[in-house]
Amino acid sequence: MKSEKPTIGLSRDEMAQRVAMDIPDGSYVNLGIGIPERISRFVPDGCEFIYHTENGLLGMGPSPEEGEGEPELINAGKRQVTALPGASYFQHPDSFAMIRGGHLDLCVLGALQVACNGDLANWSTGGPGAIPAVGGAMDLVAGVKSVFVITQHCTKTGDPKLVDACTYPLTGPGVVNRIYTDLAVIEITADGFQLVELSPGVSFEYVAERTGAPLIPIPVSSAN
């Protein structure tokens, strides 16, 4: 297993920007806590995304200016946010009706592990002493139309996060559609991990070596 920190590939902001390029204009989107939150800074020109936060706000805007925040206007990460013109507030059952009723177009989540069949583990390491905390993750993956994962390709110790089978407790089985990492964009297909795009300066072999299940190359006909 490669343990050195890769010096190539995308930064976290570049990963977030890459995801934003693939979000259809007009989408209703839920962004998970952490790296996914960065995506809201990179809305492509001419596009409008409406951000949902599961604690009861559609039309979430950026963090408030220093000193202008309100303790009762927060996001799911419990950080203060703003409400954009056209926003709405609602109660929890309505918020999760949006999620579980299939009304949201996309959610982008972080991951501990993603398996080649689309299984996602992102809520618990299951370790002794760990406080299990699931929040809305299981609702999101069960109900939202499309699920993207944004994650470093490997753990801090160099182990693959894209694996043959998850060893951590699942958030949901077979729920992930696409994975955006520092090294590549990968689609989950019936055949497993299908490479869609390599990050600049990254080779197929480099990614395949760091992926815990077979990586299917881009078909020659569609490569450019």
């Binding site: 599961e54 109660q91 929890h92 059952p93 918020s95 999760f96 999620i99 579980r100 299990p132 905390a133 699931v134 929040g135 809305g136 993750a137 299981m138 609702d139 109900g143």
Partner: peptide, 15 residues
């Protein structure tokens, strides 16, 4: 004691 419930399930169980 802890009963861990997914957030949407918790909201809907209360509703």
């Amino acid at each position: 004691e802890l009963e861990l419930v997914p957030q949407g399930t918790l909201a809907e169980r209360i509703r």
